[in-house]
Write a protein that binds this DNA or RNA. Structure first.
Lengths: 155, 155
DNA sequence: CGCTTGCCTGGAGTGCACTCCAGGGTTCTA
DNA sequence: TAGAACCCTGGAGTGCACTCCAGGCAAGCG
């Protein structure tokens, strides 16, 4: 598979990453960086950067030093992807990754973090629904009369 | 009202801007920049910047050149605020502002733009709901057994 | 009158999340 | 055994959305 180091998945429909497409069975799961890029929609650059900043749980290497990702890594990246689209800053995700690396005594803190994130997501959804209401109001103004709402009439 | 040029609204609860709080009646609606900052939650810096990049529909000035915002401006800023939290890039909002300035013959284009934005918002809400599902799954794992899901067990 | 506070401008600086580059080693295919 | 395609590193660059600064004018008050 020839994959140049540009951005994005091969597919053009932006319906999110395939989640579980084209995986190899556990045991035979050793993916190169560009394969992971194709599977996740992240660029190879970004994958290396995630590792540098401590957002990956130590990726395996081949005997010559090239990265070999596993299914577990893909799972992690899927989670990271989800968290990312909540708007969670990368720094917070790094914090979470640190907790995971730190071991089992950090359950409580991880729980708290996820709980807080959940609240953020709920708030965000509510915000968006408010916005949707405004948008719908405006759209119907335009659709109805071809007259824009007063706010937008030019002076 | 002494308002230093820092960020954010006076209130600490981040439940969004008050929308219609503390407005003066139409006709007596001339707000200074720091009043608008307090009302919208934007910084005075940001308000000036919005103007510079063409995101405001020509703000009125006092005889000495100071900005005097009207209720109409507040309405516009409320809309901008809504659009902003859909994740719409500022450049696109400027585009919209340009359409408004351009006059009534741009109804169709404005309609299209809002329609497209609406679709984006719907997609975004769906994404977030997907994320919520993942989050809930993980949270219940932590809550149930004190055992984290396999993905997060340290090697 | 002086003092504090607020406002003005153009331009420079910041933080985030990538994104790319130079210079070099590795792997696969013909 | 070439040659193309891929991968490595550290560090520099980019784009976005602000955010701040210097230097100066203006308004209210004791």
């Amino acid at each position: 598979m020839t994959v140049t180091e540009t951005t994005g998945p091969t597919t053009d429909t932006c319906a999110g990453p395939p989640e579980h497409g084209d995986r190899r069975p556990d045991g035979a799961d050793r993916y190169t960086i560009s394969e992971v890029a194709a599977l996740t929609g992240l660029s190879a650059h970004t994958l290396r950067w995630y590792e540098r900043i401590g957002l990956m749980p130590h990726v395996d290497r081949s005997h010559t030093g090239q990265r070999r990702y596993t299914n577990r890594d893909l799972d992690w990246l899927a989670l990271v992807g989800k968290l990312r689209l909540t708007g969670m800053p990368v720094a917070d995700m790094v914090r979470y990754a640190e907790l995971v690396r730190a071991g089992d005594h950090t359950y409580r803190e991880r729980y708290e973090l996820l709980k807080a994130t959940r609240e953020d997501v709920l708030a965000r959804i509510a915000e968006l629904q408010g916005t949707l209401a405004v948008l719908d109001r405006k759209i119907s103004f335009y659709a109805d009369a071809g007259q824009p709402p007063a706010l937008e009439r030019t002076r």
